[in-house]
């Protein structure tokens, strides 16, 4: 891997972790529904997905969860597994969306946001063998839409900014 690309991806990874940590400091969202998040870190994942490659986005996404585990949630804690499930499903859905649909970054972001919720619920159901959490699904789905749109617009702004305005080719 090129040193330049490696450096950039590393910085993006660090940025995504910082965004995640920042987000944990906003208690507002989890007050509505447990597990609900704005998903700021997804900006970085989307950015990498659209400007680098899906492989890079995948590793960034998973490494971010592991780093977050080390720093904040605790490695192999429940929240770690939830994040992992969310991040994984979210990445898969976004990669597929980018490759096979005509959706823009915003649509892809909304799908990723929803997939993140669904992934978390699936892991939760798996971990405690209890399907009742499905009741959260419509709510998470509903609130994932605005958060997905917000994150999508921010991602789009950054992608456009770097690609078009600065003419930086990653």
């Amino acid at each position: 891997m090129e040193i330049k690309k490696l450096t950039r991806l590393s910085m993006l990874l660090a940025l995504s972790v910082i965004l995640g940590l920042l987000e944990n400091m906003i208690p507002f969202f989890s007050g509505i529904i447990p597990g609900l998040k704005l998903g700021l870190a997804n900006i970085v994942v989307l950015f990498v997905l659209y400007t680098f490659s899906s492989k890079d986005a995948f590793f960034l996404s998973i490494l971010r969860v592991i780093l977050m585990g080390l720093i904040s949630t605790g490695l192999f804690s429940i929240r770690f597994f939830l994040s992992l499930g969310g991040a994984f499903l979210s990445f898969v859905v976004m990669a597929l969306s980018k490759k096979y649909t005509k959706l823009s970054v915003i649509g892809t972001s909304v799908l990723g946001s929803i997939a993140h919720s669904v992934g978390q619920i699936l892991v939760a159901i798996l971990l405690i063998k209890q399907g009742l959490m499905i009741y959260y699904l419509p709510w998470l789905l509903f609130f994932s839409i605005p958060t997905g749109i917000v994150v999508g617009y921010m991602s789009k702004y950054f992608i456009d900014y770097f690609e078009k305005r600065l003419k930086i080719n990653f």
Partner: peptide, 14 residues
């Protein structure tokens, strides 16, 4: 190692 740890972590919880 990471995969192994993942299984161990999940296993403990289950």
């Amino acid at each position: 190692i990471i995969v192994l740890l993942l299984f161990l972590g999940a296993g403990y919880f289950l």
